[in-house]
Design a protein around this nucleic acid. Structure first.
Lengths: 217, 217
DNA sequence: AGCCGCTTGTGAACGTGGGCACAAAGTCGC
DNA sequence: GCGACTTTGTGCCCACGTTCACAAGCGGCT
């Protein structure tokens, strides 16, 4: 399978994980790694890992493994984070604050190009070296800094409106932390992270475990 | 399909979303809803929604739809959040702070039973009405308050150790925000949320969109 | 009471993703 | 230079999840 092949969504998510794991490994000075070793470190099956990598072309060496640096570069390029990508963050409440200060974005290929909030009292506040700006400035920043990704960390009520403004400004990918369903044009991608949903899924499994025990007792 | 049937993971995730949507709808005074309407509000296909609900039994009325209150109760029970479930949160840094203050947990069926941090300087700090406690107290709180879910919001380096302590204390489900792969016994469930991975997935799609345009130009 | 229209519940087809197992291909030692 | 060993790349199969399409069932209207 060569470059042009469609890459499954599930594979993309794992590629990002491999990249992260490779980051810690290459700090350890390891120059080459086998699919087995990397798969263990990433918590997946080694066959799955090889199949995932095969979507990027075949550049491993049989009998040896993959050259860590080559692998990192290949995955970075594929994910489009070989150079820093700019994002804007809207909503600097509780969660937005934390996201703005999260070092992992920078180290994993992203640069926060602007912070925005609808609350006038928050404008001008400095967080992690950036000033919170008014929503009116959004479009300009997006254009100027060629931002393609927007992060929404507002309350649910505001999410759709913020989303519309991001899209209007030219953003084509959105990461939504607000517990709301967003409606967007076809060419815009949305990923949602709902913290309570994650907990509820765990809660479901707890429920099942408990039910299983009932039978035993 | 009656109660006892195994429910697919994907369905569970959506049930949580349906529950959230129903929350806003029932505030609107609507007493009954069709699969079509709910599916639209939740952003899914109506056939999928009906199949999802069918795992919980069949309690819709043909020609009418589902009674909102019955639906909410059914889903709540299935997810194990019909009464509040206790969680502990470890790591009150940037992100942990935000999580501790997030109102969505309480309103969606969870109660934070304790905040913990390894940093001695943080102990005693009050966040959202709770005092940050030392890790030494973890086991006692987990037992006393019958906590089954632990949330890890520590740096990656500390995650595995914290995880081990949670498991040792009796926690059987873990929500991990640290960018690290956790190793746990078989009976423990782990869900991970990696913010940078989410962005990288979006970045990948941006990359593809850009590549597509190249061809056109 | 009977018919009509609406909505549920589900069987069956389809597509995607995961896992196994093995052939191909390379390295290392002698 | 050759053989044994290691590891990749992938064809095949299976299971899971999604979608379609429709029969069955219920309420309301006449």
């Amino acid at each position: 399978m060569s470059e042009g092949r469609a890459i499954p969504e599930a594979t993309v998510a794992r590629l990002a994980v491999y990249l992260r794991v490779l980051g810690s490994l290459s700090d350890g000075g390891l120059s080459t790694i086998s699919s087995e070793a990397l798969a263990n470190a990433a918590g997946v099956n080694s066959a799955k890992l090889r199949k995932d990598l095969s979507y990027l072309g075949s550049f491993g060496t049989r009998g040896v493994g993959y050259v860590v640096e080559v692998l990192r570069e290949r995955i970075s390029t594929c994910l489009g984070v070989s150079e820093h990508r700019s994002v804007v963050l809207v909503g600097v409440g509780n969660l937005g604050h934390a996201l703005a200060g999260y070092g992992g974005f920078r180290s994993r290929g992203f640069r926060i190009a602007g912070l925005f909030d609808a609350d006038r009292r928050r404008i001008g506040e400095e967080i992690a070296g950036l000033c919170v700006q008014a929503m009116a400035e959004l479009a300009e920043v997006v254009t100027q800094e060629s931002v393609s990704i927007g992060v929404i960390a507002t309350p649910a009520e505001a999410a759709q409106e913020v989303c519309d403004r991001l899209v209007a400004a030219g953003v084509t990918s959105i990461l939504n932390f607000a517990p709301a369903v967003l409606v967007v044009p076809d060419n815009v991608d949305v990923r949602k992270v709902d913290l309570a949903v994650e907990l509820q899924i765990l809660s479901f499994h707890e429920q099942r475990k408990a039910a299983g025990l009932q039978v035993v007792l």
